[in-house]
Nucleic acid binder design. Structure first.
Lengths: 339, 339
DNA sequence: TCCTCCTACGTCAACGTTGACGTAACCAGT
DNA sequence: ACTGGTTACGTCAACGTTGACGTAGGAGGA
């Protein structure tokens, strides 16, 4: 509507009849301004509706902080990602830091572009969920000195902090529980194998089988399931195998839901056991309620944020790989015994 | 790790043996640089790893654009909010614009603070889900000329674009459908009445009753249910009334889930009809699948983003209140007949 | 041949702010 | 009265970039 120019320190200074520098001092609460001048400047700022320009300020200041961090996740509308974003945001707020958020959709070129955009805006640091495959862009960015923390997936290069959950251990635990209930034919359904998390969960599955003294049936392993449709198709195929698996371990959110749908459609949901990695809303309301490995998402986000902020503050201790424990939430579907 | 200074145009200029201005021209693809100079500058920029500083650029440029918009929602981890954020983000990406996101938690002071933070960073515009109650802070911001679009809830002040869904009409439709299935005692469970959406949905409920020739039973109306717990308590109370409502209209996401839980606990889920406002993941997997009024969240977000961008580009046509139609998704729970 | 116009540069100042430093006034201590 | 220190300001330049404008040299026309 109006094309009013934002008032600047100059305007305030003129109105308060002081120098620009004095306005700066008052605005930043620095000493060197008498009480009556402070009052005059405050009044002038108020009547003009003055608000400091952080971009100008950070350009000039020696630390060059923009009080902004970048968050680059796979898909901000995914419940895991958005919960993580929220956790990072909350922690950032404590530092007066705002969050520039973007979705990379697991596309290297998108991630690269967004990385560039963030760099161009001179964010103080980044929290990144790396896309699968090459991490060259991330590494380059990191090598320029940008404080960066990887979440959910660790870096394939060195010198960078990361925060992940107990993917392998918790997967092993899930499989062991299935085995302890008497299952011998336990299928694995997983996400893209380019993702570190998928690989880890698969390794955990293998370890679980081994520990339980079970033999791997290759025909019960389906990986690289992108999205619910692929998961449904794979589940259907698995259930056609002979002997049919009596338990499923689904290594990701959407895969779990897809598998559930098929089990339900075939009326096997009360007979085939299911444990999923990643909790999801309403898992407890389903029928049977779904047993899952639950990540502590707030803890993941908080930890990631704390790590970036420490680096931003100049912490130069060796890189950390923080691991946040996940828990097996027993709700019913994972406690079904074989027929 | 390194405290390398980011290279600037000066550095590039020095290496390419041209003036800073020429570097600027090359970087921005402006005419006035010969092909061989362009190549020299490009090479220099590449070897130094130069990246333009958008904050400095936007400070100096006449349009002062930061290529960043602010998004202020209630809770970014809420599925509705995060889906909306994603839609805005996608639209913003087309314009090369990044999104600064924050959660106001429906707290006026938090909203005010975040608004301030965004203003301080000189975002080009804002997409805001207003907190309930007074909108003074928003109005002030708007009156300064900041391009702003309200989503989900319209402004209580004039001169500002907004995008909402057909809260009232769709609620009426839902109630009418319940009535058409023979229900006469239809309960209403709603969110905080300070929220415009809640009021509208309640009005739609009243209109639905009226159109169906049903009399309002005040004892079947529960509003101001904050969170799932309150919703559960209210549902329990309602189911104790005599005569018991044979259908529930739950006017919000979490309320719907709370009501579902209680119905399930009392084993009434197959006997009491339920229609909820707002779809939620897995609603189709419940038992019975939940009939809901589904908002077109991507359309809401896209439209909101388009409106801000139009205003940012200088569009001065009168403010728009865009309404995106919601649809009734019949899944079963809303098609149960009274006993 | 001279004048004009265009192209490819360069110079300068400014965007809004703050670091470095200067200075006038005042106070305490001797 | 003089020194030394402190307080409360002010002046100046710079952060990295771009708008406004200047200029040298060549092309083109009369």
């Amino acid at each position: 509507m109006d094309q009013r120019r934002e008032p600047t320190m100059r305007d305030v200074a003129a109105l308060a009849k002081v120098s620009v520098k004095t306005v700066s001092r008052v605005v930043n609460g620095l000493p060197g301004a008498g009480p009556e001048v402070v009052e005059r400047v405050r009044a002038a700022a108020r009547t003009l509706g003055y608000r400091p320009n952080l971009t100008a300020s950070s350009l000039r200041r020696s630390d060059k902080r923009s009080a902004t961090i970048g968050v680059l996740f796979e898909d901000l509308s995914n419940p895991f990602d958005s919960a993580l974003l929220r956790a990072v945001e909350d922690r950032a707020r404590q530092n007066g830091v705002l969050v520039l958020a973007g979705s990379s959709e697991d596309e290297p070129h998108l991630q690269r572009e967004l990385l560039e955009s963030l760099a161009t805006r001179r964010v103080d640091g980044m929290v990144v969920m790396a896309v699968g495959g090459h991490q060259d862009a991330l590494q380059q960015e990191r090598e320029r000195g940008t404080p960066m923390v990887l979440v959910d997936r660790p870096p394939t290069f060195g010198g960078t902090d990361s925060v992940t959950t107990t993917n392998r251990d918790s997967s092993r635990e899930a499989v062991l529980q299935l085995a302890s209930f008497g299952h011998r034919d336990i299928a694995f359904l997983g996400d893209r194998q380019t993702l570190w998390t998928s690989q880890e969960r698969y390794t955990g599955y293998l370890e679980g089988l081994a520990h339980a003294g079970l033999k791997l049936r290759e025909d019960l392993v389906r990986t690289d399931l992108k999205g619910p449709d692929a998961a449904e198709r794979a589940t259907a195929e698995l259930l056609d195998r002979d002997p049919r698996p009596t338990a499923l371990f689904t290594a990701q959110n959407l895969v779990t839901v897809g598998a559930m749908r098929v089990l339900r459609a075939r009326d096997l949901h009360q007979r085939v056991a299911l444990i999923g990695f990643d909790d999801f809303p309403l898992a407890d309301m389903l029928h049977p309620a779904v047993t899952v490995v639950r990540q502590d998402v707030p803890a993941l986000g908080r930890k990631a944020a704390e790590l970036v902020f420490a680096r931003i503050e100049g912490d130069t201790t060796p890189p950390v790989h923080a691991v946040v424990p996940a828990t097996l939430v027993r709700r019913g579907s994972g406690e079904i015994r074989p027929d």
